[in-house]
């Protein structure tokens, strides 16, 4: 098992918490976390692990901080 902190930003916070501390199976990917939080992968414009850009196939490690951002486009 691994412990991961997930931080959500902007409109991803609607109907969800701003932060989650998750205990996950080894081998869990970003895509698995998106599915767990009911976030459409096509709506995640920026995905960072510990501040670095990654894609949805990235496997998470113990202690990672995963940050997820939607596109924001109104004015």
């Amino acid at each position: 098992m691994i412990s991961v902190e997930v931080r959500l930003f902007a409109t991803f916070r609607e109907g969800r918490q701003n932060k989650y501390f998750l205990e996950l199976d080894d081998g869990t990917t970003v895509l698995d976390v998106l599915n767990l939080l009911n976030i459409n992968p096509e709506e995640a414009s920026i995905i960072l692990i510990n501040g670095k850009n990654v894609d949805v196939t990235k496997v998470l490690s113990n202690g990672d901080v995963l940050s997820l951002f939607p596109p924001v486009g109104g004015g």
Binding site: E14, E42, E43, S45, I46, P71, G73, G74
Partner: peptide, 13 residues
């Protein structure tokens, strides 16, 4: 870099 190839956001909000 911010928007990548996405063209829409959650307008319902």
């Amino acid at each position: 870099m911010i928007y990548k190839d996405l063209r829409k956001d959650n307008e319902s909000l």
